[in-house]
Design a binder for these strands. Structure first.
Lengths: 251, 251
DNA sequence: AGTTTTCTTGCAAAATCTTCCAAATTCTTC
DNA sequence: GAAGAATTTGGAAGATTTTGCAAGAAAACT
């Protein structure tokens, strides 16, 4: 590949991913880490991105929850790990319903090789693969919920009610032995439709969500097939998981 | 092969590929790398491409106009003018169906003050106002058409069939006294649904589209209420407009 | 403090560029 | 049509750039 083409592709990839490790970039453009490092340095002098330790990021991150701020850089690492582990559960060519939310966004980033068919109401995920010919994206309709870039409303719920997918990859605000809870009431109905339409249901939770309860009830544990999380599950919750035949996956 | 023909084909190939190595070009035109290198140098002095190490690239990055990296396309000035003029036709608070396409994107940019409710299948327009609380965006569902960022397919058509809006702001590839034409067959059905669902239909055409015919028929002139364009309309077309009570708006 | 990861620097291999030359092609002139 | 001149083409030698790797330095994590 040409040097300029490589740099352009790095730039484009960064636009979508906001942040990327040099390793990941090297894989993306099929070059060595050294070369990518030099490319990123060149792009930095052109003012097109900023180098960080181990990677690069775009200058103007999107102004929503997907922003990688230094504040929750720790969280990002965990979400990356969850994302990678969860993506590994998807088989090549499967149809995947994907929830909106930053954790699920990180799952999406690792799905490219699986050539999946993704059905989602998440604008960031849609943008991630908007010009990728390997990944087919079906976007639900709906009203854009400003800050989050999520499509909500009856149009979105209808879309998922009509769909059938192999897997649903979901997230929520909390999970306890009593079930899964979310704080965005607007999303509940849509998420329930997503769960209804999928053969297999995978939930992703970072450890802060375990045994945490939020306002609205989303679903019973028995609808869940797999939980992906980043730390060992507390005993009482693990018991509940066992009773409901929920598989637990750690990175 | 003639030298000129070779250079023409190199130029054409670059237009398609955006980047190419000399090796690849040599294979394309069936000549040696040395020869192709000279050709590329010649094309560079003519200002038709730029040499890079190991290859060449076109000067104007192939901005699919829709690509989210806000790269500029040709005729930006005209499109801006049309966009501004067209936006002025929208009343505050109206519901507006917006077609996908670069011209309409420029209309969208000037709509913020009108606090409109926008219904669209254009991902770039959706992104434009994704985190704006003044403009409500309803995105149609659908499959993302890779490089264009347009939502297509039955889901999209259905959405518009169910909608009702005050205005539809549309574009197409050409307009003649016989009607409006577009080249993307995938979009025709969706655009027809858009036109059907709107009280008032506005079409935007830059002057290159006037009296230009494309593959697929989109609609008759009598469905149009207003045409916004950037140069005076040719007499025969203007006659047809008058017969169909079409108002013409120039910036 | 010690371990791991990443960065820098220097270097050698690979790829590419320039320059030059000879063969091939085309053009000119007779 | 043929001989000679001019141009184009393909390739080779040496210069230059790019690339990937490795060792020590710096930074981050535990």
């Amino acid at each position: 590949m040409q040097a300029e083409e490589r740099q352009l592709r790095i730039e484009e990839y960064l636009q979508k991913a906001e942040f990327s490790s040099l390793d990941e970039l090297a894989r993306q453009v099929n070059a060595s880490v050294s070369t990518v490092r030099r490319d990123v340095s060149a792009l930095e002098t052109q003012g097109k991105c900023r180098r960080t330790h181990g990677g690069a990021r775009i200058l103007t991150p999107r102004s929503d929850e997907f922003t990688f701020t230094t504040r929750d850089s720790q969280q990002v690492v965990e979400k990356e790990a969850i994302g990678k582990a969860c993506a590994a559960l998807v088989q090549p060519g499967q149809s995947v319903i994907m929830d909106a939310g930053s954790t699920i966004y990180h799952v999406a980033r690792y799905l490219q090789d699986k050539k999946p068919q993704i059905v989602t109401n998440s604008l960031p995920i849609a943008n991630l693969y908007a010009s990728d010919h390997l990944v087919e994206i079906i976007l639900s309709g709906g009203v854009i919920y400003p800050r989050l870039g999520v499509l909500v409303g009856p149009l979105a719920a209808e879309t998922f009610a009509k769909m059938h997918a192999d897997v649903a990859i979901m997230s929520a605000n909390g999970i306890t032995p009593e079930g899964v809870f979310n704080s965005h009431a607007l999303l509940i109905e849509i998420q329930q439709a997503m769960i209804q339409s999928a053969q297999k249901v995978i939930f992703c939770f970072d450890h802060t969500k375990l045994n945490h309860k939020a306002v609205s009830f989303l679903c019973e544990l028995d609808r869940i097939d797999t939980v992906v999380t980043d730390q060992p599950v507390p005993p009482d919750l693990l018991d509940a998981f066992r009773r409901n035949n929920i598989e637990v996956v750690l990175p």
